[in-house]
Design a protein around this nucleic acid. Structure first.
Lengths: 221, 221
DNA sequence: CTCTAGCGCACGAACGTTCGTGCGGAGCGG
DNA sequence: CCGCTCCGCACGAACGTTCGTGCGCTAGAG
């Protein structure tokens, strides 16, 4: 039972943490390909050239490994997608940056098997337990953040905007993984732009300059 | 190795086909929950109150079972989603009917674990082999059909329309499975309507007059 | 119509493998 | 020396798969 909650008093801490990090780095990639359940300890250990039991000790159970993998993936997602967008001011610009960052992250192949959460969420969507809960938290935070930025940007229905944007991003992921068509990303970007253009109310202040002729359309007040 | 190619001496044919049908009916539901790989022969057999080997004989291999499950799911999808829409004339109306049918099918819970193809496609998206191929065929046919109807309806970029519609449908599926929010379906319907409204070119005959009212229909006779 | 031969479906048991999980002991840094 | 990390090994369960067997039906001979 006692997983690893011991007081790691000495300097072995460094070594262990590094190993753990290496394990998780490979684990999230593997899980993005094979799924969180298809991620097996034996496969992961042999990939890393270490023993099953040695790896196992770091997490105490498979569920522990899965939870750690979700956290690792969330961290990677935050630094690859969310953080870069924080440079933009809140509202429409940040919302655009978040979506663009998501598509870029797919195109860049941040996870070896496409979006980690796209795969994991479908796998755990109707399974109870802490792993599903943690996934719900992570994805809920992402969608909630989209919603918040849509609200700040003045969307009439921020929840709807967040749903559409998330769906289009997820669709780009699965479509590209399934058919391998690189034009998918261009379509996703176009679709995302269209959603934001249509549903975000422009601040009257800076109504004019948009990219290349998005004139005073101002859909919805 | 000879699977079932024998001349079935008439009487048993009925029995076998019925059993096989019962197996597949449960198999697609189970696979929509646990995934096509998570679908295990032992679990399926005990669910149906039969032996592993008896069940196994119908398909010859797990891959055979998976392939049969994909076909069964495609059949169910066709009769639940596509066929009802064939009553509408091709083009915008049929496109709307297809999308509405898809959301209805999600809401109705045609598969116990949400959309079979939503789960299976993500699971097999980067795995080679006949199962993935068959899934690609089925989903490609669906998206291709959306595209075709969008083209008939006069969309400027039918591939883009098909991508968006498929993504929104898929998003509704995963969003509802994950969070259980029934408002998801209303959002999906609104998003789908918005996409079609925005991207389907009306016949110049009765131009203008868009929103809020499907009165002036007569899209392509 | 009766009896029987044969076919096909389903069964239970067992196979080899791989899964997740524990136990006890090297090996090395502090 | 101690303590932590990692390893080798073994376990029970579950996986897909194969085997030999029996029951129930159909077909055809008498």
């Amino acid at each position: 039972m006692t997983p690893r909650t011991h007081t790691r008093s000495r300097g072995h801490e460094r070594t262990a943490r590094r190993t753990r990090g290496a394990i998780l780095a490979r684990a999230v990639d593997l899980a993005s390909i094979e799924g969180l359940e298809g991620l097996t300890i034996g496969r992961l250990a042999s990939d890393l050239g270490m023993s099953k039991s040695g790896l196992f000790g770091h997490f105490g159970s498979k569920e522990g490994l899965q939870l750690a993998a979700v956290d690792e993936a969330a961290t990677r997602f935050a630094s690859e997608v969310v953080q870069p967008a924080l440079a933009k001011p809140e509202g429409e610009q940040r919302l655009r940056a978040l979506c663009a960052g998501y598509i870029d992250y797919l195109e860049r192949g941040v996870f070896a098997g496409g979006c980690f959460f796209g795969a994991a969420s479908i796998e755990f969507d109707d399974r109870p337990g802490p792993v599903g809960d943690r996934l719900r938290d992570a994805i809920g935070a992402w969608v909630g953040y989209l919603e918040e930025q849509a609200r700040v940007a003045g969307a009439a229905d921020p929840k709807l905007v967040a749903f559409e944007l998330q769906a289009l991003g997820q669709g780009a992921n699965s479509n590209f993984r399934l058919f391998g068509d690189p034009k998918t990303f261009a379509r996703a970007r176009a679709a995302i732009d269209a959603v934001i253009d249509a549903q975000i109310a422009r601040k009257p202040r800076q109504a004019s300059q948009r990219r290349s002729g998005r004139k005073g359309k101002s859909v919805r007040g």
